[in-house]
Design a protein around this nucleic acid. Structure first.
Lengths: 353, 353
DNA sequence: AATCCAGCTGAATCCATGA
DNA sequence: GTCATGGATTCAGCTGGAT
């Protein structure tokens, strides 16, 4: 745990215990199939991704590699685990189809829209200004983690969309080797991993990255109080990543607390309000339209022609498929109408203390 | 030519002569696999895409369908032809892999970022705010059409990126049936097709849409002076499309001439007004002295003896070294002359949100 | 005549828990 | 496994009628 394992990711994954990982973030080789060299208009040469680890003999060979590492990844995930895979149009369609074929259940595809992409120097295509991430549950039934409120807060109060605008990794964040060259050709920005991990994992979760590279996933996981496992077969990358992560400090515990939704709060049966005498049997509740229902001793309501729970009676009055009775009904307190949800909040705050 | 053919798209395509089509735009079924009903927080029901044509028994069945229509499409394309396919995460990965397997050569994936997507009502995933288009040549050797300068002109003088922000099709553009309901559940916006056709085809080219629906491809092709072939098996959609396209008027010939040489960068994206249909190619703009200039499809203007950006033509008419075209030009709206800057403000307010 | 507001809608794989 | 039930959840933009 919190280590970088040496070796081929498939073999290493198969040596780890099954159902032991909460989240996987994978940045596999893109299989770029670049032909000649590319030069900028000023004749400078573009430093391309031409590493041996990105060479595959055919689509079939790439597909086999993809199926194999996905199978190993799926074995490692807990039943409610999830996976993120990032790629470009060269490989992401094959990865996505393989994910579906393996039984993963796609939850979203998320577009990383680069605010500062490399232009298309030849003027023969569109500027390749984005990469695609696929977020998928281990299976269709997985109860995946999604910190809705935290992401909404990250986005100034509006729910997070499937397109994320983030700059590419450069400047001080971009790791250099001893010669001052970039240490890894495709280092991902920490901002990207921050959003992934805040949104789809919780503190203490185990996060695995089978293509660890220079360790962005590990660095951000450490900051955010997640446990990480990295797998990387290139010694040079492992060395850079080790040094990088050792310098990372975990955020304060308070900083790791994210906004939670009401769903995470304890359930309070309406009957408790009656039991505790906050509402008395026979007391009248009022709908937004002024309709009246009476509280009964067992915590149900009775209206003019219907009885049942606060939700059922509200739904009936509205002719709606469902209704949140807590916010629907009000009662009279000192002559003013007050939502009954206020009483639930009182009970919850008592429970917390 | 310029007709809507009735029948199954694979059979119809196989009945057409091979190597006869320059460009294909395809909006195939997405295979959504929706389960139950979905309600908004206000309890209104979401009108889902549950049509029979989007039902497939398995991924294997969908893959076979995809391979078959792609093979027919590939046969129809000229050697230098290209194809666009649009989809969502439900199907686009399978389509992309099938394209590659069939020998198509992916040129870009292009993300349509929706400025006004439907939210995620249950707060369980990211807002599904984009769709993906794949642009591919018939083969790796295809000398595909790419109107670099025209697209650059549409994008305020900056080269066009692989992510396009456009609103979904609603308002008056959205076609209704006799009962006032939407005529087609997934009608695409004309702005999207405008950019596709201006960017990757030339006037006179033959454009095929094998999933014609209500004919957005045909309508925009006609406006832009392209020949179209539509294939649609649902009589109701064909009827709506026929009526729609009959009302479309082709733009003036000179409006279709797009820039072929570099020019000064306009300071503002006037082209977006054209792309979004706020101003139509061929429409007249008026100077303060009553002089007239016509809008062209790539967002440039043509006057009596001058053509160029809104700023350049304005400056020429005034004999001035420079001119702010945004405040200089007006267009007619409901009989009144309105500065085009009003339209820019509309776009800006959309972008800000 | 402008402005405002309520209402409606869009390619959506959209719940969790306990009996 | 199924089933019933509590109760949580939305953004942008257009339209048509009211102010």
């Amino acid at each position: 745990m919190n280590a970088i394992l040496d070796g081929d990711c498939i073999k290493v994954m198969n040596s780890l215990p099954e159902a032991s990982v909460d989240l996987i973030f994978a940045d596999p080789p893109y299989n770029l199939q670049l032909k000649g060299e590319l030069h900028r208009p000023d004749n400078s040469r573009v430093d391309a991704v031409d590493d041996a680890w990105d060479q595959f003999s055919s689509f079939a060979a790439y597909d086999k590699f993809t199926r194999d590492w996905l199978a190993a990844a799926q074995r490692l995930l807990k039943p409610n685990g999830a996976i993120w895979v990032i790629g470009s149009y060269h490989n992401i369609f094959r990865v996505g189809a393989a994910l579906q074929d393996a039984g993963f259940w796609i939850l979203n595809d998320v577009v990383w829209r680069k605010s500062n992409p490399m232009p298309n120097f030849r003027g023969k295509r569109f500027t390749n200004a984005h990469e695609t991430m696929i977020w998928a549950g281990k299976s269709e039934d997985s109860k995946y983690t999604f910190n809705y409120e935290a992401l909404k807060a990250l986005n100034e109060g509006i729910q997070m969309r499937s397109d994320w605008v983030l700059p590419i990794c450069n400047g001080h964040e971009r790791l250099k080797d001893d010669k001052g060259d970039k240490a890894h050709p495709t280092q991902k920005p920490e901002g990207l991993l921050h959003r992934v991990l805040v949104g789809s994992s919780n503190p203490g979760d185990v996060v695995l990255d089978p293509f660890f590279g220079t360790g962005t996933t590990g660095a951000v996981a450490k900051m955010l109080g997640r446990e990480f496992i990295g797998i990387e077969r290139e010694a040079a990358y492992r060395k850079v990543a080790e040094k990088r992560i050792s310098k990372v400090r975990k955020f304060d515990r308070e900083a790791l607390q994210v906004s939670t939704s009401k769903r995470a709060e304890p359930r309070v049966p309406f009957g408790q309000l009656v039991e505790r005498g906050m509402l008395r049997p026979g007391e009248e509740l009022y709908s937004p339209r002024g309709q009246i229902a009476k509280v009964r001793a067992d915590g149900t309501l009775i209206g003019t022609d219907v009885k049942g729970s606060i939700h059922q009676v509200g739904a009936h009055l509205e002719g709606a498929p469902s209704c949140n009775g807590w916010t629907y009904w009000t009662f009279k307190q000192d002559g003013k109408k007050v939502p009954i949800d206020v009483l639930r909040q009182q009970i919850r705050s008592e429970m917390a203390s």
